[in-house]
Amino acid sequence: MRSVIFRTFAPFITALMVLFSIFVLLRGHNEPGGGFIGGLVGASALAIYGISAGVGPARRALKAHPMSIAAFGLLLAAVSGVLSLFTGQAFMTSQWAAVEVFGVTVDLSTPLFFDIGVYLVVVGAIGSIALALEERESD
C-alpha cells in the first residue's frame, strides 16, 4: 500500500478531501449535502492519511483525539438547540442572524451549528474507528 506514488500524493488528496468535506457540509443547508455526508468524506480523508503516513503521524496531525472531536460535536449540536431558550420558543427552534462580511450577507443559523456538530460527530466517530482498525493492521 505504501508506494512512493501514494505517499507523495496522499497529503494533497487528504487536504482536498477535507476542503471538499467542508464544502459539502456548508452546501447541505439548501442543496444535497450536509453534516453527515460531509463528515464521511472528512473521515475518509483521515483514513487515507493514516494509511499513507501511519496512524501515529495521523493522530499527531489531528491534535485532538477523534473521540474528543465527536464529543465536542454532540455538545455543539445540543447547545445549538438551547439558544431558543432565550427567545421564549421550544427546544431546537431555529434562530437566524444575518451577518455582513465584506459586502456579502451570510445567514448564520442554529441549524448550521447543529450540522457542524453532526459533521464533527461523524468525523470523530468514524475517524476513530478507522484509525483503530489501521493500527491493528500495522501491528
Binding site: S68, A70, A71, F72, L75, A78, L85, F91
Partner: peptide, 21 residues
C-alpha cells in the same frame, strides 16, 4: 418551566460529552 421536560436529555448529553472530552 416547560424546559424541564427536555432538561434531562440536555443535561446528560452536555455532562456526558464534557466527561468524554
Amino acid at each position: 418551566a416547560d424546559w424541564l421536560v427536555v432538561a434531562p436529555s440536555i443535561l446528560t448529553i452536555v455532562g456526558g460529552m464534557l466527561c468524554l472530552m
